[in-house]
């Protein structure tokens, strides 16, 4: 058998990952047609797409620490796909709410977003992710320039924090699941602080001339 080129190999791996990331959606569609989404299919679809969005967003935030601490350099090659898929699920999540809960009434939706803190949080998270998704092409990275692009994409931290708060604030009594997400997010964010602190300490000390 012919050996794959590095480029072909990467494309294959990315396709595999994309396929895996589409599993939650495939399951929702299958369950819908098998009538096994339960008594409240709209709620089930909303919850499942929200869970998928949050989980994949956290996964995308795990890439950099894995790259840095475990020296798994290839991981970085999959970060964009993870981020975009998280946005994709968040967008479906919001669309279900827009269509089935608000019946496409933009006035009602805006009022709801403004009035309900947990919806404000979720909506803000989605809005923050939008420019990040748009600038996720090679062309845009070039156009913005590396440092500028990186600065813009730091906004993903805010999107993740808002997404977890969104979940936290809608729960009635059992905070187990949101707590789990919050702990994961705190761990992922603290690796950044740790890295940042280390970088600062390791800076070569410039001796003042005596």
């Amino acid at each position: 058998m012919k050996k794959l080129s590095a480029k072909q190999q990467l494309r294959l791996e990315k396709s595999g990952l994309l396929l895996a990331l589409m599993l939650p959606l495939a399951r929702i569609i299958l369950d819908y047609f098998h009538d096994s989404l339960g008594a409240n299919p709209v709620e089930a679809m909303t919850h499942r797409t929200g869970d998928a969005a949050l989980q994949i967003l956290l996964l995308s935030l795990a890439v950099t620490p894995i790259h840095r601490y475990f020296r798994f350099r290839r991981a970085i090659l999959f970060r964009r796909l993870l981020g975009l898929t998280a946005f994709f699920y968040a967008l479906i999540h919001f669309s279900i709410y827009l269509v089935f809960d608000q019946e496409l009434s933009f006035g009602d939706t805006f009022a709801d977003v403004a009035k309900r803190p947990y919806i404000t949080m979720g909506f803000s998270s989605l809005v923050i992710m939008l420019p990040l998704a748009i600038t996720s092409t090679d062309k845009m990275i070039k156009r913005l320039g590396g440092p500028q692009w990186r600065r813009l994409h730091k906004a993903v931290y805010a999107a993740a924090v808002l997404a977890v708060i969104h979940y936290w604030w809608l729960v009635k009594a059992d905070l187990t699941a949101p707590t789990l997400y919050a702990v994961c997010l705190i761990v992922l964010l603290s690796t950044r602080f740790a890295w940042w602190a280390r970088q600062r300490n390791n800076k070569p000390v410039i001796k003042q001339p005596g």
Binding site: D101, P117, W169
Partner: peptide, 16 residues
């Protein structure tokens, strides 16, 4: 305090 009580989803229906 956190959500509207103006509408409801009747189980079996898609819209509220």
């Amino acid at each position: 305090p956190r959500w509207s009580q103006g509408k409801e989803r009747r189980i079996g229906e898609l819209f509220k």
